[in-house]
Design a protein around this nucleic acid. Structure first.
Lengths: 171, 171
DNA sequence: GGGATTGAGCACCAATTGGGTGCTATTTGG
DNA sequence: CCAAATAGCACCCAATTGGTGCTCAATCCC
């Protein structure tokens, strides 16, 4: 059994495949059929996924014969984080906190004494920053390198403490 | 429904809680009962989790009355990645590749035409590097800062392309 | 030595989640 | 009017995860 920590759901996988295809056909209208013919993916799920992306404003669509999907924005203005959020919802690393949302019902069952909440929250933000710093364009163009990726992630996690101080990285 | 992308299983959550408690009591023997009394967590699952951590060589244990668990190594020599790997298995970002393992059966159903495999693999490695760069000590001591975290992650993802070249990080 | 305490090892059940499909309505082009 | 194609549900099935029962083995204390 392999770790789901970094797992993407099939929906997101299929969504990425579709989106990358849309990047390839930027400026044109692409039907679900076309994408489904190209990749051995359940056509129906692909359709569901594109509907979700449409509702999220990442793609636009036109119904009827000759209809299909296209990117709502240029590929460099669409981030991986946005895509994942659209297809899987907002991120949460531990189950005991959703940044104030849905606090009405169950609440964190580890409550006040939960010692992992704070540090993991920061880590989650760092990871999320990585996703936000990766654009659909950079995914499409493998030769491009997500350099800005780290500067943004660093900006999020760095405030943890003063840089290059006591801790020994060589340990 | 919130995104499982960064989700940790309850096992890992409980494991982290237990480990942080062990850090707090470094040098002493801590029983499952003690941890279970401190945090509102299913004592039994906590026990299962500690067993797993023991099998992974992260903690050591002693049976019998007065027995319990303690860290097998200093907290700065235990990484979050290691913990997660022990409790959830090795990481995989997309389902279509597990680094060569389990290639006998299903194989990647998107096969050769899978366009997301390469870029996401690299992203996964970057995220994993973040986890590997975070020590249990840094989690325990919130004031400590995971600075080395980014240098290691950068080392993994940077090879994507020549460093500090064409791309504009300020974009 | 005997009993209480505590971890080890399995097997197993129950609840949630995710993958996937059926069906119908609506829009659009020919 | 018919065919193509998206929109919107509702639903089922398989897989994973959360959680528990039971038994055995080691250790301490009396």
């Amino acid at each position: 059994m392999l770790n789901p920590l970094l797992k993407l759901t099939k929906r997101t996988e299929y969504g990425l495949i579709a989106l990358l295809h849309l990047v390839d056909r930027e400026g044109e209208i692409v039907s679900v059929r076309e994408v489904g013919d190209r990749y051995p993916v359940p056509r129906r799920l692909l359709a569901e996924t594109l509907k979700d992306l449409g509702r999220a404003g990442i793609v636009e669509s036109q119904r009827g014969a000759g209809g299909g999907y296209w990117l709502a924005r240029p590929a460099e203005a669409i981030t991986l984080g946005e895509i994942v959020a659209a297809l899987e919802g907002a991120p949460s690393l531990t189950s005991c906190q959703d940044l104030g949302a849905a606090r009405t019902d169950g609440e964190c069952d580890v409550q006040e004494v939960c010692p992992i909440r704070s540090p993991l929250t920061r880590l989650r933000q760092g990871i999320w920053a990585l996703l936000e710093g990766t654009t659909l364009r950079s995914l499409a163009n493998t030769s491009l390198h997500p350099t800005a990726l780290f500067s943004s992630a660093q900006a999020v996690v760095a405030p943890l403490g003063p840089a290059g101080q006591g801790e020994d990285p060589a340990a």
